[in-house]
Design a binder for these strands. Sequence first.
DNA 1: AGCAATATATGAAGCGCTTCAAGCATGACC
DNA 2: GGTCATGCTTGAAGCGCTTCATATATTGCT
Lengths: 358, 358
Amino acid sequence: MKRPITLSDIARAAKVSLGTASNAFNRPDSVRPALKARVEAAAQQLGYAGPDPRGRLLMGAKANAIGFVPASEISVFGMLQNAFSRRLLSGIAAECDARSCNLLIISGTEDRKDWAIRNAVVDGFILGHSSEVDIVSVRRRKVPFVVLDVDAGPHVHSISIEAYKGARIAVEHLLALGHRRFAIQAVMRKPGPSVFYPAGENRQRESSYPIDRAKLAGYGDGLRTAGLSLDQVPIVESHTTAENSEEGAKLLCERAPNATAILAMSDTIALAMLKVAKWRGLRVPEDISVIGFDDIPEAAEASPGLTTIAQPLIEKGRLATRMILENAPPTQVVLPVHLVIRGSTGQAVGAPASKGSG
Amino acid sequence: MKRPITLSDIARAAKVSLGTASNAFNRPDSVRPALKARVEAAAQQLGYAGPDPRGRLLMGAKANAIGFVPASEISVFGMLQNAFSRRLLSGIAAECDARSCNLLIISGTEDRKDWAIRNAVVDGFILGHSSEVDIVSVRRRKVPFVVLDVDAGPHVHSISIEAYKGARIAVEHLLALGHRRFAIQAVMRKPGPSVFYPAGENRQRESSYPIDRAKLAGYGDGLRTAGLSLDQVPIVESHTTAENSEEGAKLLCERAPNATAILAMSDTIALAMLKVAKWRGLRVPEDISVIGFDDIPEAAEASPGLTTIAQPLIEKGRLATRMILENAPPTQVVLPVHLVIRGSTGQAVGAPASKGSG
DNA sequence: AGCAATATATGAAGCGCTTCAAGCATGACC
DNA sequence: GGTCATGCTTGAAGCGCTTCATATATTGCT
C-alpha cells in the first residue's frame, strides 16, 4: 500500500492552495464553483478519502462521540446480555440518536482498559457502575464525565436514584399485604457463585457498593416499622448474570423455605426467582410474593408480571448523555423511583401471623 | 478554561527535551529512572492529562476501534431494541473484548450519518444491513469494511448466510409434517405498517433486499417439490419492530385464516405470531405451526419453543470483527444454517389433504 | 586512566489538517 | 478611467505528538 493521498496532494493536482482545497470540502460556499469543481475532480481522480478526521481533530474539533465505560466486573459482551445495562445503554443511544453523536463503548480489562480510556477520542465519558480505578483513569483525561449510582463529590457529574426510598417502599408494600417472613436477594458485584447469609448476622457491611447499601438500609428501616429487623432476614447475594441469578434463587429457596416475601435488589434476580419458583411448584403470588427493582422491560412481560420499584433507566441514560454534551457545571442528580404493582405480589397466606423468617 | 497543558509544557517544566518527555510516557524503559520521575512529577504538578491521543493518531497510530453502522432504517436505539441486531452486536462485542478493541456505534440519519462515517476515528467498519448510500460513504474512507448479508463484489469483505437453503429446509420440514396450507411472514425493510399480499400475485419482486429474495426463492422451490407454488401462498410483510410484527401477525391471521403453517423470515416476527395466535385462542402447534429464522435467544425461551432456522449470529459478529482487525485480503464468507426443531411446529391436523391455502 | 561500546537524551522534522491575516482580483460606482 | 468595497485565494503558522538521526553520557574493559 502506497502513501495515502492527502489534502495537499489534491491541492497540488487542482493547482490551488492548501487552504482553498480545505475550504472546498468544509466551506463549499466560500469558494468559487469553478475551483470547487477542480478540487473535486482532482479528489475523484486521485481517489482521495476525504479530509482525514485526525487532522481536523488536532485542530480542536469536537470528537462527536461519547465514551461509555461498562461496569468494571463485566465485559462489553456481558453488558449486552444484561437487561439493566442494555436499558441504560438504550437511553444513552436515544440521546445520541437525537444529537447525531456516536457512541464509543470502551472495551478491555485491567491495564488495557486504562489504556483504552487514555486513548479514546471522545468528548466525555459515562461510567456505568465503574470501579474506582476506572474513575481515576477517566478523571485524568480532563474531559467531562458522569458517574452513575455513585457520589463522587461536588466536582463530578453524577446521577443516582432514590435507592433507600425505593427499598423502603418495596418492603412497605409487602408489609401492607400482610407479609412477615422476608428474604432478600442482594446483588453481588463481583462475578462468582452466590453466597447465602443466614439470619442473625450484621448486614450493613455485606455490600460494598453504595447503592446496594442504601437499599439494604431501606429494607432494614422498613422492616423496623413493623417491629421486624434486618437481622432476622436471610440474604442471598448473587451476581446478575442469568446463571448466577438462578443459582442464587435456588439457594435461597432451599435455605429459606419459609419466606413468603422476597425483596430483590434487581429485576434480573427477581425474574430468576420467578422462574425458580415455577420449577419448584410454588405459585406466585399465592405461595410467595416477589418484588424487584429497576423495572426493566422484561418485568412487564413475565407472567405473572413482576411488581417492582421503577427507576427511569432511559431517562438516566439520556440525562447522562446530555450532561456530557452540554458541558454545564458538574451537577448531582437523584432520580425518583416509584412502585409498579403487577402480579408477582399478593396478600400473605394467613393473617399476619408469625414473626421472623427463615 | 485556560489553554490545556501539553507535552511540551511538561518537557519545559521537567527540563528535558520533548522527545524525552514523550519517551517517559510511551517507552518508560528507555529513559533513566531519575528523569522519568522528574517528568512524572512535572505532569503531576501541572495536572497534565497525559499524551493527547489526537497527536498520536496523527502519527499513524491505530485507532483501536471498529465502527459499526446499524441498519439504515433504524436508529441506534431501535437497534438495541431488536433482538437480531443485539445478538449480532454481541458477537462483535465478544471479539472486541477478546482484543481490547473499542466499539464505535455510528449514529445519525441521512447526511449527518455520512458526516459521522467520514469523521469516525476507527480502523474499519462493519455494516449491518446498511443501505447503498452508507456503503458509498464507508467505501470512500479507504479503510477495511465488511458488509453483512449483501454481496458487494470480490473486492469487499462480506458475510452472508445460506438463506436460500435455510428457507428451503424450513418449508420441507413443514411439508414433511403434512402441511399444505402455507402463509409467509416476510420482512419489510422500511418502517411502516404491514402490507398483506393475497395469493395469486408475482412474489419475486416484493422484496428488495437480497437475503429476503433468497429466502422467498427457497420457500418457492421447496413448495414446488410438493406440487405447490409460491403464487398460492398469502404473504404479509412487516417491519421487525415488536409493534409492526404483531400488527402483521394479526393481519395475516385475519386475511389468511386457513393457513396451518407459517413460514416467517425472522424470529422476531415469528414470535409475534406465536403471541397473536395465543391471543386468538389458536393452539401451537396443534392448530397452527410456525417456523422462524435466525434462532435468536428468545426463540428458545418462548413457550412453546420456536422451531427455527439457526444462523450463527455470534460467530457472524466475531468473524466480521476479525476480518477488519486482521486486514486480510477481502473475502466473501457464507455461513451455514441449520434446522432447530422446538415446539412450535407439529403434525398437520388431518392427513395431507387439500392443496393451496387461503 | 583511556578507549570502545553501549545506553540515553536531544532537536528538528514532520503527521494532515484548519485558520487567519494579508494579498489580489473583480466589479460597482462616480 | 480611477477609486473602493467586496469576495475569493493564498501562504504560513501552528494543533500535540512521535520518530529518528545525531549528540552526549555511562559503563565495561584492558
